[in-house]
Design a protein around this nucleic acid. Sequence first.
DNA 1: ATTGTTTCACGAAATGAATTCGGCCGGACA
DNA 2: TGTCCGGCCGAATTCATTTCGTGAAACAAT
Lengths: 157, 157
Amino acid sequence: MKNMELDRIDCALIELLQNDARLSNKELAAAVGLAPSSCLARVQRLRTEGVLKGAHAEVDPQALGVGLQALIAVQLRQHSRAQVKAFWKHVMGLPEVLAVFHVAGTHDFQVHVAVRDAHHLRDLALDAFTTRSEVAHIQTSLIFECAKGKAMPNYRA
Amino acid sequence: MKNMELDRIDCALIELLQNDARLSNKELAAAVGLAPSSCLARVQRLRTEGVLKGAHAEVDPQALGVGLQALIAVQLRQHSRAQVKAFWKHVMGLPEVLAVFHVAGTHDFQVHVAVRDAHHLRDLALDAFTTRSEVAHIQTSLIFECAKGKAMPNYRA
DNA sequence: ATTGTTTCACGAAATGAATTCGGCCGGACA
DNA sequence: TGTCCGGCCGAATTCATTTCGTGAAACAAT
């Protein structure tokens, strides 16, 4: 399941679907030069093998009232497995959290959050971070702008 | 275009599509209690209004030979608009880059990268970051684990 | 109240896509 | 050479998407 063979066509399919998961099977087939039925078989295989793990719609933050995003760097008091796990579960349960990174370095976590405004951010920092017993210190960085890369790089091709 | 009305059903559609962009229109319609045709009209409207901005397949990093991810914190030498823009364009052109955050704080950027291994990360840091004239200092943090939240929070509902 | 207007949802029909299936080609192997 | 195996094709079926005409509710103005 882990190291499956990906030929040139598989890679093309993966890249196309990363850019636009809504491409029809027909369009996909045309793009890679395969018959729709063959193309479908490949995509299904990629899905069942776990290479393609799902698809998610991208939504405009502004449309949802998200006016501000931030990265919150978190230092824990101790690095015990229990504390790490507890904090992880806690932040993943917060609606404001877009992503959590457990990192090695001067901080233990980087938490990407989306909030209404500065006031909301302050409340979130105070209520959901600094009050936690396992949290030693946080440092909040406002995000001016953020962008995602087009696709995950492929180091097998 | 900016402040469009989103009723209960629109919000439900948005949330469903964030969790799984591959839901068929028929399934979507059933989930929100609408006829397929009505549901389609709404989804199309959300798309043309820019609330839904696209969909992207999620792929397993391991399957593509990505064995390591990291967050690289970058400090620029100067904060001139030209330098910020130049650096932004540069990192967005790198295949290893998954996301870029331009932030306010002790660092100027946080760059999320996906690499083959530690060796690859070293080369990337040296070749694509520290050699850039606008970069004053970088600090690399290995990512142990990272997870994305289920959906963008909705502060209009 | 009534009339006109707008908005939205419905459902049937037409259009087009996804999926299934049998058969075919080409390479691997003995 | 003969057989096996994997992958692709193309037509047929099944199913979903999309279009379009209709009608019900909300609202404004007369």
